[in-house]
């Protein structure tokens, strides 16, 4: 890999100052960035290690739960507040990667991880995300793991995270710090669709850093479930995953939250299916109908068309688990 400078940030402000310079990247757990550097996919001049910043806290707030950007995936998944208030997030985290990776990976880093598309990782192949204008290798190539929603002619890659699918379903907010101070955006608006700029994964601007996420309190803790279908039972990316959260009262769904992983360039929230479930009885029949609604506009490619059949099955199955029908 290219030689690079390495500094350890002493404060949030010094981090923000450092990343204002082009070619500088933040490193936290490094579970994805170091791989990308070894493969020559990215070659920063300077790394700013932020592991010493006080951003590891997991605390109850007046309106919900705050999780610092540097909280480890493993720690969040076992945290008692998370387990009590947002068990869906714990389930999503535990479905991701391997215990070793979760012990290194942070919440902010998880959000910033890049697609595992093989064409993105192999610098001898075309990839608009890695090198705009070179074409999409996956479009006419091996696209078994790729998007069925929201893809563009430029890119059909998917976001690899499980945690983000959980956070998208739970109406989380991302807290971002930059030169001009802090700003907040809805988690569901954090990641982008590829459009004509697949090189941009998200809306984090140059010179900004993630400092945490907030999850509002809800009534989903009793009836939520994360179901991930993959080629092996650990350390494999999702073929399709579903985060399902229900607020059920007397057998009737008051509110539903649904998000899918492994199907789009960002965690894919299923708003129409959620609306369809609201006010309905928590039955398998209603879950299957909602799953069909969620599949409108799905488009498959040569090797991933199975997802169009698999995804609704996984949605219905996740909802059954969430409702306690399994």
């Amino acid at each position: 890999m290219k030689q690079f400078q390495y500094t350890r940030a002493v404060s949030q402000q010094s981090t923000i100052d450092a990343i204002a310079k082009p070619g500088t990247k933040i490193i936290a757990g490094g579970t994805n960035l170091v791989d990308l550097m070894k493969r020559g996919v990215t070659a920063p001049d300077k790394l700013v290690d932020i592991n010493n910043l006080p951003l590891k806290n997991i605390t109850s707030t007046k309106t919900g739960l705050h999780i610092g950007a540097l909280a480890l995936n493993s720690v969040v998944s076992e945290n008692s507040l998370v387990l009590q208030k947002q068990p869906l997030l714990s389930m999503a985290l535990k479905a991701g990667a391997s215990p070793q990776l979760r012990n290194m990976a942070t919440v902010g880093g998880n959000m910033m991880q890049r697609t595992r598309c093989a064409y993105f990782f192999d610098v001898s192949m075309p990839c608009n995300k890695r090198e705009p204008g070179t074409g999409c290798g996956a479009m006419g190539g091996y696209n078994r793991m790729h998007a069925i929603f929201g893809a563009s002619e430029q890119c059909i890659a998917v976001h690899p995270s499980d945690m983000c699918v959980g956070l998208a379903a739970l109406d989380a907010t991302v807290i971002i710090a930059g030169k001009k101070g802090e700003r907040r955006i809805q988690f569901i608006d954090f990641h982008r669709l590829p459009g004509d700029h697949p090189e941009q994964d998200n809306h984090l601007a140059m010179g900004e850093m993630i400092i945490g996420v907030d999850i509002p309190d809800n009534n989903f803790a009793k009836n939520s479930y994360y179901l991930k279908i993959r080629d092996r039972q650990s350390y494999a990316f999702a073929l399709v995953s579903v985060a399902a959260a229900l607020d059920i009262s007397n057998g009737i769904i008051k509110q539903a939250r649904l998000a899918m992983g492994g199907v789009a360039h960002k965690p894919w929230r299923l708003f129409d299916a959620e609306k369809a479930l609201a006010g309905k009885a928590a039955t398998e029949e209603n879950f299957k109908q909602a799953a069909q609604i969620a599949m409108r506009d799905a488009k498959g490619y040569e090797y991933n068309s199975f997802k169009i059949k698999m995804a609704p099955a996984v949605i219905a199955e996740a909802l059954k688990h969430a409702a306690g029908l399994v």
Partner: peptide
Amino acid sequence: DHRYGRIVNNNFADYHVPV
């Protein structure tokens, strides 16, 4: 990927062995 005559899953994340 036969277009390039190149293996596209040449790593332990994409080539799965049982865990």
